[in-house]
Amino acid sequence: MTQNTALSSAPLQNFEALGLLPALCKAVQRLGFNKPTLIQQKGLPALLKNKDVLLPSQTGSGKTATFLLAALQKLAEKKQKEGEFYQPYPQILILEPTRDLATQTAGVCRQLGRDIGVKTRLICGGTSREQQLRSLEGGVEIIIATHGRLLDFVQNGQLDLSHIEYLVLDEADRLLDEEFSQSMTALIPYLADHPQTIFCSATLPDTVMALAKKVTRNPVQIEIEEETKTPRRLQQRAIFLHDEEKESTVQNILTQFATEERIIVFVNTKKSANELAKKVRSWGFKAESFHSERSQGERKKVLDHFQGKQCSILVTTDIAARGLDIDNVSIVINFDLPKSSEIYIHRIGRSARAGKKGKALSLITFDQRHLLRDIEKNIQHRIRIITPDDLTR
Rank of each mutant, 00 (worst) to 15 (best):
G113N: 04
E179H: 08
I264T: 04
A352Y: 01
S295A: 00
E225C: 00
K26R: 13
L38Q: 14
S248W: 14
M209R: 08
E179M: 13
E247K: 15
T207V: 15
F85T: 13
E16I: 12
A76E: 06
Q251I: 10
R322K: 01
T5M: 09
K119W: 00
A6C: 04
D206W: 00
L363D: 03
I313M: 08
V215G: 04
Q104Y: 02
N274H: 13
V329L: 13
E376A: 05
D100H: 03
A23H: 09
Y86H: 05
A10E: 15
G349R: 03
D336Q: 13
V28P: 04
H194A: 14
N4Y: 13
L254P: 02
S9V: 15
R30M: 01
I123F: 06
G323K: 04
K309V: 11
I345G: 04
A17R: 03
K278P: 05
Q307K: 15
S295R: 03
T249E: 12
Y344P: 07
T249Y: 10
R350M: 09
S341T: 08
T105R: 06
K35C: 10
G32W: 07
Q91V: 03
N328G: 01
T66F: 08
S312W: 03
H305S: 11
Q41E: 08
A102M: 09
L44C: 07
L18A: 05
R262N: 04
Q158E: 11
L211C: 09
N50L: 13
Q13Y: 07
Q29I: 06
L136Y: 01
S135V: 01
R350L: 08
H370C: 00
L12H: 00
K271Y: 02
I326V: 14
R322P: 02
P205R: 07
L75P: 02
E141G: 04
F180P: 01
K357E: 13
G60K: 00
Q131L: 11
L161T: 05
T216N: 05
D177A: 09
L175C: 14
F257A: 00
V108R: 07
S272M: 10
S128I: 12
P56R: 05
R382M: 10
R384A: 12
E247M: 13
F199K: 07
E226T: 12
P11D: 11
L211T: 09
K78M: 11
L150G: 06
E226K: 11
L372D: 11
E165N: 06
D52E: 14
T5S: 12
L93Q: 00
S201M: 04
K359Q: 10
S341W: 13
R322F: 02
K214L: 12
L234E: 08
E137K: 15
L44E: 01
C109E: 01
I348F: 00
P189D: 10
T228W: 00
V267C: 11
F266P: 01
H194K: 15
G83H: 08
C124G: 00
D173V: 08
D390G: 05
K286Q: 14
I39E: 03
